[in-house]
Simulated scan of single mutants.
Amino acid sequence: MQTKVERRMESISELGILQCPKCRGKLSVEGRSLKCQSGHTYDFSKKGTVNFVLGYGEENYSKDMLEARRKLMRLGLFEGILDRIADAVAESGISKPVILDAGCGEGTGLEYLDEKLKEKGIEARLLGIDISSGGITIAGRTEKDILFFVADLGSLPFSEQSLDFVINMFTPASYREFRRVLKPGGKVLKVVPEREHLIELREAYGLKEYSNDEIVAHMAENMSVVSRERISTTFDAEGHGDELLLMTPMLWGKTEGKSALAPKSVTVSASLFILE
């Protein structure tokens, strides 16, 4: 029986779209590493993940924060958004899409998306990248056939015109790179928070009102907006206030001694933009 690492190495070889982020040469599996013709080498971890950015970007999130996010995601924090993303993929009519989650964190969203797409009869090839090595370490635990990499948004380790969709959810974007790796007709599924997103937390801890105007303007300057859909749900956070505070970057360092102020439920409000 194949090990997890062997399965993922085989999947990478079959996919054949990995590219060295240093020289843009094609990467091939050699032994337990990925190598390009220029000699750049990237080793597989014990979980079958690969780190393309060794030496930086590895300490931006704590393990506790990532585990808190994973727990809340598994409780359904962003299910409404992920359900709509699955619908958008299905509506494309592509039966075996190659999908990248650019900024996948600890990978829980991709695990959920894998299940939803399979329910729709879609056999997607799912890829996740994040700059957080801690997040990718957690993501690599999954037994699902999802490939995870530590990588920089500004230098994606994929060849030109190799992806059908790029998901970019609540994270920075690199539209130049997204355009490079998308196939003709490929789409970016960009999720941007709205003013009401987690508004209960903002009000409880005295934070200023949020605006997405700059994010939306930058997006429109770089890609064409095919559609915009508002998604709003309510998440029952009762009993999970500590995890909610821990996973929310805007609250870091602002809630000491004030955990009792954590709301019992929060609004999840975002717009899904389909871009090309």
Rank of each mutant, 00 (worst) to 15 (best):
residue 1 M to W: 08
residue 4 K to I: 07
residue 7 R to D: 10
residue 9 M to K: 15
residue 10 E to P: 06
residue 12 I to T: 10
residue 14 E to I: 08
residue 15 L to T: 05
residue 15 L to W: 07
residue 18 L to I: 02
residue 19 Q to E: 15
residue 26 K to R: 15
residue 26 K to H: 15
residue 28 S to N: 03
residue 31 G to Q: 11
residue 33 S to P: 04
residue 34 L to Q: 05
residue 47 K to V: 11
residue 50 V to K: 03
residue 50 V to H: 05
residue 51 N to H: 12
residue 52 F to Y: 05
residue 59 E to D: 11
residue 61 Y to T: 01
residue 65 M to I: 02
residue 67 E to F: 12
residue 76 G to K: 03
residue 77 L to I: 07
residue 80 G to I: 08
residue 84 R to E: 07
residue 87 D to M: 09
residue 88 A to N: 08
residue 89 V to C: 04
residue 91 E to G: 11
residue 96 K to I: 01
residue 100 L to S: 08
residue 106 E to A: 13
residue 107 G to D: 14
residue 108 T to P: 08
residue 110 L to A: 00
residue 110 L to E: 01
residue 110 L to D: 01
residue 112 Y to E: 06
residue 114 D to Y: 11
residue 115 E to S: 11
residue 119 E to V: 12
residue 121 G to N: 01
residue 126 L to V: 05
residue 126 L to Q: 03
residue 130 D to R: 10
residue 132 S to N: 05
residue 135 G to P: 07
residue 136 I to M: 04
residue 136 I to C: 05
residue 140 G to N: 00
residue 143 E to M: 09
residue 149 F to V: 01
residue 150 V to K: 11
residue 150 V to R: 11
residue 152 D to V: 14
residue 157 P to G: 14
residue 166 V to H: 03
residue 170 F to P: 04
residue 177 E to P: 09
residue 178 F to P: 13
residue 178 F to S: 15
residue 180 R to A: 07
residue 182 L to E: 06
residue 183 K to L: 12
residue 184 P to I: 06
residue 185 G to K: 07
residue 186 G to H: 10
residue 187 K to Y: 00
residue 188 V to H: 00
residue 188 V to N: 00
residue 189 L to Q: 10
residue 193 P to D: 06
residue 197 H to T: 12
residue 202 R to N: 03
residue 205 Y to E: 03
residue 205 Y to M: 02
residue 206 G to K: 03
residue 208 K to V: 14
residue 209 E to V: 13
residue 210 Y to S: 00
residue 212 N to Q: 03
residue 212 N to E: 06
residue 213 D to H: 11
residue 214 E to S: 10
residue 215 I to Q: 04
residue 217 A to K: 13
residue 217 A to M: 02
residue 218 H to M: 10
residue 219 M to A: 00
residue 219 M to K: 00
residue 220 A to D: 02
residue 220 A to L: 03
residue 224 S to I: 12
residue 226 V to G: 01
residue 229 E to D: 09
residue 233 T to R: 13
residue 234 T to V: 15
residue 236 D to G: 04
residue 237 A to Y: 07
residue 239 G to R: 02
residue 239 G to L: 07
residue 240 H to C: 11
residue 240 H to L: 08
residue 240 H to S: 13
residue 247 M to Y: 13
residue 247 M to K: 15
residue 247 M to Q: 13
residue 249 P to E: 03
residue 252 W to G: 00
residue 254 K to P: 09
residue 254 K to A: 09
residue 255 T to D: 01
residue 261 L to G: 05
residue 261 L to V: 04
residue 263 P to F: 07
residue 266 V to M: 10
residue 266 V to L: 13
residue 268 V to Y: 12
residue 273 F to W: 01
